[in-house]
Computed example of a mutant assay.
Amino acid sequence: MSNRVVNKRMLLMLLGSALLFGGIFAFKIFGSYMMNRAFDTMPQPPATVTSTAAEIQIWRESLSAVGTVRAINGVDVTTEAQGVVRAIHFKSGQTVKKDELMLELSAEPEKAQLQVLQAELRLARRNHRRTSILLERGVATEAELDQTLSTLEQVLANIEVQRATVNERRVTAPFSGRLGIRLVDLGQNVDPGQAVVSLEQLDPIYVDFFLPERYFSRVAPQQLVKLTSDAYPKRVFQGRITAIAARVDSDSRNFQVQATLRNPEQKLRPGMFAEVSVELPTQRRLVVVPRTALSFAPYGDAVFVLQRSKEGDGLVAQKRVVKTGEERGDLVEIVQGLREGEQVATSGLLKLRNGSPVNIDNANKPPAEANPQPENS
Rank of each mutant, 00 (worst) to 15 (best):
G180M: 08
A293F: 08
Y232H: 09
L211M: 11
L227I: 13
Q258T: 11
E265Y: 13
R130H: 03
T165P: 00
G16Q: 13
F209I: 07
A345W: 06
R269L: 15
R353C: 00
E342K: 04
T172A: 11
T141S: 15
K267D: 10
R218N: 08
A368P: 02
L19P: 07
G93R: 02
R60H: 15
T50E: 02
D301H: 15
E342W: 06
R269K: 12
S32H: 12
E104S: 15
I29P: 00
A81F: 13
T260H: 04
I56W: 07
S347N: 11
R129Y: 05
V85K: 07
A259S: 08
A363T: 13
V344W: 03
L186Y: 10
L294E: 02
K310Y: 10
R125I: 09
V66K: 14
N189C: 00
I159V: 04
N127L: 11
D185A: 14
S132A: 15
L349T: 01
A220L: 14
Q343F: 03
Q256D: 08
F209T: 03
E340M: 02
P366R: 01
K8M: 11
P204Q: 04
T52E: 10
A243N: 08
W59D: 07
Q266Y: 07
V84S: 12
G348M: 08
T151Y: 04
S295E: 13
V184C: 07
A124R: 03
A243W: 11
L183W: 11
L135G: 08
A302T: 05
L350Y: 11
L114I: 06
A112L: 15
S217G: 04
E333N: 04
V287F: 01
F210Q: 10
S176V: 01
L149F: 02
L114A: 15
E369Y: 02
E340I: 00
D330M: 05
K97R: 13
D230G: 15
A317L: 05
V116T: 14
G300I: 10
S51Y: 00
S356R: 14
Q283R: 15
N371G: 00
E369N: 06
S106M: 09
G93E: 02
R163E: 11
L186A: 11
A119M: 14
S176M: 06
R269D: 03
V184R: 13
S277G: 03
V207D: 04
Q113T: 07
A173W: 01
K98Q: 14
M34H: 14
E275R: 15
R328A: 07
Q373A: 12
V207I: 10
L134D: 06
V190C: 12
T242Q: 08
P212L: 02
R182I: 15
P270Q: 03
V139K: 02
Y206S: 01
L12N: 14
F296H: 08
A245V: 10
A140G: 05
L103N: 07
L211T: 11
Q188M: 09
N3R: 12
T52L: 04
R291C: 00
F90A: 04
K319D: 07
P298R: 14
A368M: 01
I56Q: 13
A143C: 01
Q162K: 03
V276C: 03
R262M: 14
I24K: 13
P264K: 12
R269W: 05
E100C: 00
T41I: 01
V171I: 14
R214Y: 06
L352Q: 08
